[in-house]
Amino acid sequence: MEHCTLAVGILEALVSALILYKIASARRGRSLFIRRIPGLAAIDEAVGRATEMGRPILFSPGMDPLSIVTLQALAVAGYVARTAARYNTRLIVPVRDPAIYPIAEEILREAYAAEGRPELFDPEDIRFLSDRQFAYASGCVGIMNRERVAANFFFGYFYAESLILGEAGTQVGALQVAGTPATTQLPFFIVSCDYTIMAEEFYAATAYLTREPVLLGSLVGQDWAKVGLVVLIGVGAALATVLGPASSVLRLMLTQFGGG
């Protein structure tokens, strides 16, 4: 089994401490700025479009089993569900992992109840399709065509089926918003979707949508941690250039940070 070195352990502790400090700072009432993310700002636009057209929305939480990525996607699904409930619009959530199904059902039930529209919630709109990649994609495409969805949301981790989902949604004329940390699928979502939320913006989604102090503080903390790590990378690159690859200092750094 792989275990962390002393340097990595210290680095992780520092990063975590910085994030927790910023969370505590935000909880004390400090206001924090977050830039506009067009894809997230388009969620309301997409739900509004579906409401005007009288057609449902499809939200796919991705292909991963229950994980950090899927939890984030489900958090966004909850926001979309509240917006859909507010506008009396139907939301269909096909899931790939059956373990996600009861969680998604509970999130949507609570979202509709929070908006005072529990009667709008239909348990049959949360559907386990298949745990097989292309069977799931086929099922989603079938839902898009039969239900003539007006808006698609693809949030989570996707694989080769990303282009199938995106293109099928384009063919039915749906407004599509995708958000994924899967760098290999970003090009496909960018060409087939109207808005794409990429990489770390995906993890900023809940902070952006809810403006909760804890989430905003965490976002600022991770940004500062990123700055610190970039400085460390720069120092390492400079040392490698000046000292040369055979330097003992460089070898020690590589060993400690897992490169040698």
Partner: peptide, 29 residues
Amino acid sequence: LIFGIMMGVIAMSLRVWLSLERGHFFGQE
């Protein structure tokens, strides 16, 4: 991109582990 993603994963994992995550999934504060 991966660098930013990993920082996001660390931050969210920390929030979930310490039950600090807030939002529609984990319930309001």
